[in-house]
Measured scan of single mutants.
Amino acid sequence: LTVEVTLDGRRIELHGLSEEAHEILRHALERNADDKEIKKILEELRK
């Protein structure tokens, strides 16, 4: 799955996400998580 997010003013596409990762990010974006929170989530998903 692919998600497009804006971090530090740049639009980035995240490819190859699992369903779980996609859901976690989608929920964070829906509640307008800040860049710091999104980065933390991405860091966790990379593990």
Rank of each mutant, 00 (worst) to 15 (best):
L1K: 11
L1Q: 07
L1G: 08
L1A: 08
L1C: 05
T2R: 08
T2P: 05
T2H: 09
T2W: 09
T2N: 07
T2F: 09
T2D: 05
T2S: 14
T2E: 04
T2L: 05
T2V: 11
V3H: 05
V3P: 04
V3N: 03
V3I: 15
V3G: 03
E4A: 02
E4V: 15
E4I: 14
E4C: 13
E4W: 02
E4R: 02
V5Q: 02
V5E: 03
V5Y: 00
V5G: 03
V5I: 15
T6K: 06
T6D: 08
L7K: 04
L7F: 01
L7A: 05
L7R: 04
L7N: 03
L7D: 03
L7I: 15
L7P: 04
L7H: 05
D8L: 00
D8R: 02
D8V: 03
D8M: 00
D8E: 12
D8W: 00
D8K: 02
G9C: 04
G9I: 01
G9R: 00
G9E: 04
G9A: 02
G9H: 02
R10T: 14
R10G: 08
R10D: 10
R10E: 15
R11E: 08
R11H: 09
R11A: 08
R11N: 08
R11I: 15
I12Y: 05
I12L: 07
I12P: 02
I12S: 02
I12A: 03
E13N: 06
E13Y: 05
E13D: 09
E13Q: 11
E13P: 02
E13C: 08
E13K: 08
E13L: 09
L14H: 02
L14R: 01
L14P: 01
L14N: 01
L14Q: 02
L14E: 02
H15F: 08
H15L: 07
H15Y: 06
H15C: 11
G16A: 05
G16P: 03
G16Y: 07
G16C: 07
G16S: 06
G16V: 05
G16W: 11
G16Q: 06
L17H: 01
L17Q: 01
L17M: 07
L17W: 04
L17F: 07
L17I: 07
L17Y: 04
S18Q: 04
S18V: 02
S18A: 04
S18I: 02
S18L: 04
S18T: 12
E19T: 11
E19R: 07
E19W: 12
E19Q: 13
E19A: 10
E19I: 13
E20G: 09
E20S: 11
E20R: 10
E20M: 10
E20Q: 12
E20W: 09
E20I: 10
A21E: 15
A21S: 08
A21K: 03
A21M: 14
H22G: 10
H22C: 10
H22F: 15
H22L: 14
H22K: 12
H22T: 12
H22P: 01
H22E: 14
H22I: 14
E23F: 03
E23W: 03
E23L: 10
E23V: 05
E23I: 07
E23C: 07
E23S: 11
E23Q: 10
I24W: 04
I24M: 13
I24H: 11
I24T: 11
I24V: 09
L25A: 00
L25S: 00
L25G: 00
L25F: 02
L25V: 08
L25E: 01
L25R: 00
R26D: 05
R26S: 12
R26I: 15
R26H: 08
R26V: 11
R26M: 14
H27T: 14
H27Q: 14
H27S: 15
H27C: 08
H27P: 04
A28H: 04
A28S: 03
A28F: 06
A28Q: 02
A28N: 01
L29G: 03
L29C: 05
L29K: 04
L29I: 13
L29A: 06
L29P: 00
L29F: 07
L29W: 04
E30S: 07
E30P: 00
E30L: 09
R31Y: 06
R31E: 09
R31P: 02
R31G: 10
R31W: 06
R31C: 10
R31M: 13
N32W: 09
N32D: 09
N32C: 11
N32T: 06
N32Q: 12
N32I: 06
A33R: 03
A33P: 07
A33Q: 04
A33K: 04
A33I: 06
A33D: 04
A33W: 07
A33T: 05
A33S: 06
D34T: 14
D34W: 03
D34F: 05
D34P: 13
D34C: 07
D34S: 13
D34H: 07
D34Q: 08
D34G: 11
D34V: 06
D35G: 09
D35N: 08
D35C: 05
K36L: 14
K36F: 14
K36Q: 13
K36R: 13
K36D: 14
K36E: 14
E37D: 07
E37N: 04
E37R: 03
E37H: 06
E37P: 01
E37I: 09
E37M: 08
I38H: 00
I38M: 12
I38Q: 00
I38L: 13
I38Y: 02
I38G: 00
I38F: 05
I38W: 04
I38P: 00
K39F: 12
K39I: 14
K39N: 08
K39H: 13
K39R: 13
K39S: 10
K39G: 09
K40M: 13
K40S: 12
K40G: 10
K40E: 13
K40H: 11
K40Y: 07
K40I: 10
K40T: 12
I41L: 11
I41Q: 01
I41H: 01
I41A: 01
I41V: 06
I41M: 06
I41Y: 02
L42A: 01
L42V: 10
L42R: 00
L42G: 00
L42Y: 05
L42Q: 01
L42T: 02
E43Q: 11
E43C: 10
E43S: 10
E43M: 10
E43P: 00
E43F: 02
E44Y: 08
E44K: 11
E44A: 13
L45M: 11
L45D: 02
L45T: 03
L45A: 05
L45C: 09
L45E: 01
L45N: 03
R46H: 13
R46D: 12
R46Y: 12
R46A: 15
R46K: 12
R46N: 14
K47C: 14
K47L: 15
K47F: 12
K47G: 12
K47W: 11
K47P: 11
